[in-house]
């Protein structure tokens, strides 16, 4: 959280540099789903390296495997074959319990439909990941206030999701994702449910988190306008990464 509270991290380079330290390393990833007796191969022999501090956009048609890839990177699912290394830790072999702990410490998720708890205020929603830490109530509240300040919602602390606009709800979602100060932010269509103005504000915020707070961001999107904000864009098609912009 100190990184967020006092942005001291170096802005990331817009282009991945060969010399940059690799944060994410996917090697030979296959992912197959079973539907009855039929096997559907969603990802095939996929390799991907993401340097620390990169803002990567993943584009591709529906069913191309973007969200599946994001789930694998975030430890929400496991590959059928291949290895996933994050910050030199192989995560695809961790037990469910260790994987949950790893997610709590290292990854922040931003969802298309915000996925906030409707019965909790903005502050309580942001506090959720901190419940898994050993922080006391006062420290948790301090971190929540900082995270909401970063996303520009200090004045909406006690509001419930239903009292917030779509853009504000997504900001709360982002505050929840960054409150534990993870190194990796995984965003699944973060502007997909927003109008252009609100979407731009969210993209501004993500860009700021990348450039001023050093967050490595992987964003799945259909929107080329959103992808323009990323430092690199990869296209997925039929389970393969086949073009790099």
């Amino acid at each position: 959280m100190n990184d967020i509270a006092s942005p001291s991290a170096e802005p990331a380079s817009p282009e991945p540099a060969d010399s940059a330290e690799t944060l994410l390393d996917l090697r030979g990833i296959d992912k197959t789903f079973k539907r009855g007796s039929e096997e559907i191969q969603v990802l095939q022999k996929l390799d991907l390296q993401v340097p620390r501090g990169e803002f990567l956009a993943l584009m591709g048609p529906s069913g191309s495997g973007k969200s599946t890839l994001l789930n694998l990177i975030g430890g929400l699912d496991r590959p059928s074959h291949g290895e996933i290394h994050v910050d030199n830790h192989r995560i695809d072999r961790l037990s469910d319990r260790k994987l949950a702990t790893w997610r709590a410490r290292n990854v922040g998720f931003v969802f298309q439909f915000y996925n906030l708890m409707p019965v909790l205020t903005a502050a309580r929603n942001v506090e959720l990941p901190l419940l898994l830490t050993r922080m006391n109530g006062a420290r948790r509240r301090k971190h929540v206030a900082t995270a909401l300040d970063v996303v520009g919602l200090s004045h909406r602390v006690k509001h419930y999701p239903r009292q917030l606009s779509g853009g504000e709800q997504q900001r709360v979602g982002i505050a929840r994702a960054i409150v534990t100060d993870p190194q990796l932010l995984l965003c699944d269509e973060p502007t997909g449910d927003l109008d252009r103005k609100s979407g731009d504000e969210i993209l501004d915020l993500l860009q700021a988190l990348n450039q001023h707070h050093g967050k490595t961001i992987i964003m799945v999107t259909h929107d080329p306008h959103a992808a323009e904000r990323a430092s690199r864009t990869l296209h997925l098609d039929k389970g393969r990464l086949n073009r790099e912009d």
């Binding site: 975030g74 929400l76 469910d96 319990r97 949950a100 702990t101 997610r103 709590a104 410490r105 998720f109 969802f111 996925n115 708890m117 959720l128 990941p129 898994l132 929840r176």
Partner: peptide
């Protein structure tokens, strides 16, 4: 269901 999945995604364990 979806909210529970979100809780798990942010680090709540199965047992939790």
């Amino acid at each position: 269901t979806r909210e529970l999945a979100v809780l798990k995604s942010i680090g709540f364990t199965d047992r939790g």
